[in-house]
Computed example of a mutant assay.
Amino acid sequence: MPIMAHSPLGGEGSTVLRNPTVQRIAASRGESPAAVALSWAMRSGAVITIPESGSVAHVRENHVREDAAGLTLRLDPDELRQLDQAFLT
């Protein structure tokens, strides 16, 4: 059974997008921190992510840029290991 992650980026006030590991990988890939975080969350195929937003403009931005990038961005094993260490240990 898949896990559903509502607001997988942590919502307002979250530090996920400001995490140094997320920031570093995003910068090295030329992607947004949100795309990196979503790609990491969806890597197993067992997580359904539903990004949340408080504004229509951000929903559009999520749909066009971050969600789409999160779906197509493939992090390499070293990047996945770094993110696992940053959030799962």
Score class of each variant (00 low, 15 high):
Met1Lys: 02
Pro2Lys: 13
Met4Leu: 12
Met4His: 08
Met4Pro: 00
Ala5Cys: 10
His6Pro: 07
His6Ser: 08
Ser7Ile: 03
Pro8His: 04
Gly10Leu: 10
Gly10His: 09
Gly11Cys: 12
Gly11Asp: 12
Glu12Leu: 14
Gly13Gln: 04
Gly13Met: 08
Gly13Phe: 11
Ser14Cys: 10
Ser14Arg: 15
Ser14Tyr: 13
Val16Ala: 05
Leu17Ala: 05
Arg18Thr: 09
Asn19Leu: 05
Pro20His: 04
Pro20Cys: 11
Thr21Val: 15
Thr21Gly: 05
Thr21Arg: 04
Val22Arg: 05
Gln23Thr: 13
Gln23Cys: 05
Gln23Trp: 01
Arg24Tyr: 01
Arg24Gln: 10
Ile25Ala: 05
Ile25Tyr: 09
Ala26Tyr: 06
Ala26His: 04
Ala27His: 13
Ala27Trp: 01
Ser28Glu: 15
Ser28Cys: 10
Gly30Gln: 09
Glu31Ile: 03
Pro33Glu: 03
Ala34Arg: 11
Ala35Cys: 02
Val36Gly: 15
Val36Leu: 10
Ala37Leu: 13
Leu38Cys: 08
Leu38Phe: 07
Ser39Pro: 06
Ser39Tyr: 00
Ala41Glu: 00
Met42Ile: 11
Met42Tyr: 00
Met42Ala: 12
Arg43Tyr: 07
Arg43Lys: 13
Ser44Glu: 06
Gly45Arg: 09
Ala46Thr: 13
Val47Asn: 11
Thr49Leu: 03
Ile50Met: 09
Pro51Ser: 06
Pro51His: 10
Pro51Tyr: 05
Ser53Gly: 15
Ser53Arg: 04
Ser53Ala: 15
Ser53Lys: 09
Gly54Asp: 09
Ser55Met: 02
Val56Phe: 11
Val56Thr: 13
Val56Ala: 15
Ala57Leu: 02
Ala57Thr: 06
His58Asn: 14
His58Ser: 03
His58Arg: 04
Val59Phe: 08
Val59Asn: 01
Val59Gln: 09
Val59Pro: 00
Arg60Met: 02
Glu61Val: 07
Glu61Cys: 05
Asn62Met: 08
Asn62Leu: 14
His63Tyr: 14
Val64Gln: 14
Val64Asn: 12
Arg65Cys: 02
Arg65Lys: 04
Arg65Asp: 09
Arg65Tyr: 08
Glu66Thr: 10
Glu66Gln: 15
Glu66Trp: 15
Asp67Glu: 04
Ala68Pro: 01
Ala69Pro: 10
Gly70Met: 08
Gly70Val: 05
Gly70Leu: 03
Thr72Asn: 09
Thr72Gly: 06
Leu73Ile: 10
Leu73Trp: 02
Leu73Asn: 03
Arg74Pro: 05
Leu75Asp: 02
Pro77Asn: 03
Asp78Tyr: 00
Asp78Gly: 00
Asp78Asn: 05
Asp78Arg: 00
Glu79Val: 01
Leu80Gly: 04
Arg81Gly: 00
Gln82Trp: 07
Gln82Met: 07
Leu83Ala: 12
Leu83Asn: 05
Asp84Ile: 01
Asp84Gln: 14
Asp84Met: 03
Asp84Glu: 15
Asp84Arg: 09
Gln85Arg: 14
Ala86Gln: 13
